[in-house]
Computed example of a mutant assay.
Amino acid sequence: MIGYFKDIQYQPRIDKKVLQSKLSFSKPPLESLLVTQIPIFFAIGTADENVPIESAYIVTIEFLRHGKNNLTFKQYVGFDHNALMVDESGHSVDRWNQVTDDFFNWLSKN
């Protein structure tokens, strides 16, 4: 996989724009987030299989390390990427209302 991205960066083939757009989406957004001055609400479910929770921790740690205080980090225990949670009986329960309520409460204060 790393070789694929190196090829895009250093030896673009066929359609350079398409290949380089794939590479740009692969860039970590951390640098852009760190220069942002507006408040940021950053939420993740601990059962998210698309975005490792460790990635969220890295962002939070980097904000602290850079002395930034415009990041609000909220983790939702047991929620997946779509704010679904599996209950005791094994059924998926939609928790988007909780996430959006938290976001709008945060928004009203920021």
Results as ranks from 00 to 15, higher is better:
Leu84Thr: 09
Thr36Gly: 00
Leu71Asn: 00
Ser21Tyr: 03
Ile44Asn: 02
Tyr57Gln: 04
Arg95Thr: 04
Gln98Val: 07
Gln75Phe: 06
Phe63Glu: 03
Pro39Arg: 09
Leu23Thr: 01
Glu88Gln: 15
Ile44Pro: 00
Ile38Gln: 15
Val99Glu: 00
Asp101Thr: 13
Tyr76Thr: 03
Ser21His: 06
Ser32Ile: 07
Leu33Trp: 02
Leu19Ala: 12
Thr100Ser: 15
Trp96Thr: 11
Phe73Gln: 01
Ala47Glu: 11
Ala83Cys: 11
Ile38Leu: 15
Lys17Leu: 13
Ser108His: 08
Pro39Trp: 02
His66Glu: 15
Phe103Tyr: 10
Ser55Met: 04
Arg65Asn: 10
Asp94Gly: 09
Val51Asp: 08
Val77Phe: 11
Ile44Ser: 01
Glu62Ser: 11
Asn50Val: 10
Gly78Asn: 07
Leu64Ala: 14
Phe5Met: 07
Tyr76Ser: 03
Asn97Ser: 14
Val51Ile: 13
Gln11Pro: 01
Gln9Trp: 08
Tyr4Lys: 09
Ser26Gly: 08
Lys109Tyr: 06
Tyr4Thr: 14
Leu33Gly: 14
Ile14Cys: 09
Phe41Asn: 00
Ile58Asn: 03
Ile38Cys: 09
Glu88Trp: 15
Gln9Arg: 13
Val77Thr: 14
Thr72Lys: 07
Glu88Tyr: 15
Leu34Asp: 03
Leu107Ile: 10
Leu64Val: 09
Leu34Met: 08
Asp15Ile: 07
Asp102Gln: 06
Tyr57Asn: 01
Lys109Met: 10
Glu49Tyr: 11
Asn105His: 13
Asn105Ser: 13
Phe41Met: 00
Lys27Thr: 05
Val99Arg: 00
Asp15Arg: 10
Phe79Gln: 03
Trp106Thr: 01
Ile2His: 10
Ser92Pro: 08
Trp96Ser: 12
Ile44Tyr: 02
Gln11Val: 13
Thr100Ala: 15
Gln98Asp: 10
Phe104His: 09
Phe5Trp: 05
Tyr76Val: 00
Glu31Ser: 04
Lys27Ile: 07
Arg65Ile: 09
Asp94Ser: 09
Lys74Gln: 05
Gln20Cys: 05
Asn50Tyr: 11
His81Phe: 01
Ala43Val: 05
Asn69Ile: 11
Ala47Asp: 12
Ile58Met: 03
Ala47Ile: 02
Lys74Ser: 01
Val99Asn: 01
Gly3Phe: 05
Pro52Met: 07
Thr36Asn: 03
Gly78Leu: 04
Tyr57Thr: 00
Ile44Arg: 04
Ala43Pro: 06
Asp101Ile: 05
Phe41Arg: 00
Phe63Ala: 02
Gln20Tyr: 07
Phe79His: 06
Ala47His: 08
Asn97Lys: 10
Glu88Phe: 15
Leu30Met: 03
Leu19Ile: 14
Met1Ala: 15
Leu23Glu: 06
Lys6Pro: 02
Thr72Val: 08
Gln75Thr: 11
Gln37Tyr: 05
Lys27Trp: 00
Ser108Asn: 12
Lys6Tyr: 11
Val59Tyr: 03
Ala47Ser: 12
Asp80Lys: 02
Phe103Ala: 06
